[in-house]
Design a protein around this nucleic acid. Structure first.
Lengths: 191, 191
DNA sequence: TCTCAATTAGGACATTTGACCTATAATTAG
DNA sequence: CTAATTATAGGTCAAATGTCCTAATTGAGA
């Protein structure tokens, strides 16, 4: 599968638009305009809008796994890897301040729509969760690993929501710092 | 202003529907069906959908202030008052697990729509923030009061998002407990 | 009882949206 | 080169949506 196929372009455009405008508020025309294909065309590639959503979620799952693998390779210790996750808040700040967390906001929207792909969407969170759990396990926190993972997710979700509401980068910096210190304090005596 | 006016019924129905289905995904027909009035009727009361949103936000602002006043009267110490806020996660759990936090999810949605009422919506958060700041100030944390207030908001936002994504009540209970302990530890030596 | 303003009902309308269809172009296989 | 498959364009359609308009109903005061 090349990455220049029309299908792939549709999914990438939908990915971006679903994130920036929300799923419901993104129309076929929006996607068609972005990809510069005719409206009717993507009924050749996808049989419905829900179908595109599924493809977008699959793309996100795959991108997420790729990113985690990269962190796994680049960082030497579990603590550093967890910090890689925490720091997305800063590296992706320009997007987050405008559109929030891509994972969290999609899950929230689908919940309100009572959409069939709710579980698929939350699977992206699960990928992060399992990966973070693994990192915590390796630091010796076997029993609480899952709770700690969930805590990191919740923490960054909350910071993202508040930061984007108030457009407060300073708050994000402070909280990221605190979270990193917390991770350090949890893991400093083990390895 | 009576609370039985058609106008008030419209606002209350819209309040609930905007929360449960989202602003964009709630149609005039939905509201009309709920209130059992004709579609055309609320153009007598409101000149547009945005107009209804403003009224809904005003209602939420007013309800929020009422709730804070109640907590102010019922709890004796600032710490207990802060805990009242934290415990909404549990007292309102049935709604939160389905629809998330009403304040946070609206702010997030309006941000993506780039809607004119974004700031009005975030004002609801500000009401909580100022109130929490006051409580922290009274415990002696003058300088960090605002940061602590923002931290409480972020914390509960994150827990709400993750809990509703994974439908995990146990996690909420644990986190609420932790947050309350944290508040206690911050305030135990002052008053 | 009559009047007039406030309120409500319900239809009309232009637009948008997701979906479908058919004709044509491009590409590949034999 | 030809046939067949793949891909794209663009039109059409029904349903839904926000908005507007006008006629009917209500109710209080003169």
């Amino acid at each position: 599968m090349s990455n220049n196929t029309t299908r792939h372009q549709i999914v990438e455009a939908a990915d971006r638009l679903f994130y920036q405008r929300g799923y419901e508020h993104t129309s076929f025309a929006d996607i068609a305009d972005t990809v510069k294909i005719s409206r009717g065309n993507f009924y050749y590639h996808f049989k419905s809008k829900d179908d595109i959503l599924e493809a977008v979620i699959d793309l996100r799952l795959s991108n997420t796994k790729g990113m985690l693998n990269k962190w796994e390779a680049e960082a030497d210790t579990p603590a550093e890897r967890i910090k890689s996750y925490i720091r997305i808040l800063l590296t992706n700040w320009n997007n987050i301040k405008q559109f929030g967390c891509p994972v969290g906001t999609l899950c929230t929207e689908l919940a309100k729509l009572n959409h069939a792909s709710q579980e698929e969407a939350s699977a992206v969170f699960t990928v992060f969760r399992v990966w973070l759990r693994d990192q915590f396990t390796r630091t010796g926190h076997k029993k609480e690993a899952d709770t700690l993972a969930l805590r990191v997710l919740a923490w960054s979700q909350g910071v993202a929501t508040m930061a984007s509401t108030f457009q407060d980068e300073q708050f994000v910096r402070k909280e990221v710092e605190r979270m990193c210190c917390w991770v350090e304090s949890l893991t400093s005596d083990k390895e």
